[in-house]
Design a protein around this nucleic acid. Structure first.
Lengths: 225, 225
DNA sequence: GCAAAAGTGTTTGGGATACACCCATGC
DNA sequence: GCATGGGTGTATCCCAAACACTTTTGC
């Protein structure tokens, strides 16, 4: 193919929507921008993707640098979400962003990252760029993923109680679920097994701890509402 | 963010997986490459995305030029599929491709496109680049889409028989479906209505023609197996 | 009349939903 | 003993799946 003018590609960036669970709330990792544009506002961690790096490599590098999180070691799961490409989304010029969505649990931020924090997805600050809509899209995707995969495993500790499992579903889906039906159905999927351990906390009956048979992502034959 | 070396983005390209139905077969649109690399091999229609164009604008332009198809006018439906970015996927250098999937019916190719044709998805020629895996991914996505949206409308004529509708599902899903159960379930979704017209063809009973109430993409409350 | 596709109902099993009480513990 | 969350069973309804014959047409 021939061009009358030299070919100039748009800037390519990568951004990550990283979720974790904190009690009953789903949280997302943000960084505060130190430079214009949007200086001082919160944004998804992300940065440039230069030629020679895949988008996931570029993302791993930039997330490590900006918020001190090691995607391979600290996230249970990451997948490509969508590519956002409207010309006006970055005031500096045309910029195409390949976004990823990941999940982890009790994620520790690196020491050099004072300007990074988790925010509850229902109480986000003002966000730079189109990042609010990216987070909304990621949350929908995550909610859908929980219904037809074992992705919830990525949000929980290796051993967890059935109440914690149910709380994870309720936090992501944003609605309450009947306890008896939830347990009956989830156990019937055969994804988890009891462990000999118990969870003891507070003045009430201890809870059995369960674990997933398979922590890698698995698509279910029956979907879960 | 500062870089020791000047920032150079990868090449950005766009590619389209365009499906149509031909009788009982699902077909995909390919073009034969006129230049190296992969000269003479078949590939998805696609090309460069220069700065200033969104991926969908770039795609519309390149698809019109290469195969003479007008995405807005001739496709019922198009959506972003995935962004493929492995460094080695193009022998000329690092190239990131944003891919789209679309559906249409009885798509006419432009006159200037001798080197374009539809192929049955189950009988593809050797394909350039990683395009075989892109098509496989698109087909899975389309199959999933048919179960929870009215996307099948994009593969059919505005008026269609229930047998044609069932055949569309069977072609995309790649399996047979019981006729009585299919009709009962699909009609219960309330997506289509009878028209006064009949389909007459061959030495057998004529069939009622139906039409969708809503041809724009709609997510179903109950999913369809 | 015969070939070919259209059209039509019933039965059965399993999962979804709705719903309320006892259990084990710490204090 | 009491407050707190853990843990359990049943009845109903709807949907999914399996399954075979009659109807209408062109020739």
């Amino acid at each position: 193919m021939k061009y009358a003018t030299p070919y100039i590609p748009p800037t390519l960036t990568v951004d990550a929507v990283i979720f974790q669970l904190n009690g009953t709330e789903l949280e997302v990792l943000l960084t505060q921008r130190s430079e214009d544009p949007f200086k001082g506002e919160w944004a998804l961690p992300g940065g440039y993707n230069a030629t020679g790096s895949t988008t996931l490599e570029a993302l791993a590098s930039v997330v490590k640098r900006k918020v001190g999180v090691d995607i391979d070691a600290q996230l249970a799961y990451i997948e490509q979400l969508y590519t956002f490409d409207t010309v006006a989304r970055d005031p500096r010029g045309h910029c195409v962003s390949v976004t990823y969505m990941g999940c982890g649990r009790a994620i520790e931020l690196g020491s050099g990252s004072q300007h990074a924090a988790f925010f509850p997805v229902d109480k986000l600050p003002n966000l730079a760029y189109d990042h609010a809509s990216i987070i909304a899209y990621a949350r929908e995707r995550l909610s859908a993923k929980l219904t037809y995969t074992n992705a919830v495993a990525g949000l929980l500790e290796p051993k967890f109680t059935l109440s914690q499992l149910q709380t994870a579903y309720e936090a992501v889906m944003g609605r309450e679920i009947d306890k008896r039906n939830f347990r009956k159905k989830f156990l019937s999927l055969g994804l988890i097994h009891e462990t000999p351990d118990m969870w003891r906390e507070g003045a009430h009956r201890p809870a059995k701890l369960y674990a997933f048979n398979n922590t890698s992502l698995e698509v279910l034959s029956r979907s879960f509402d």
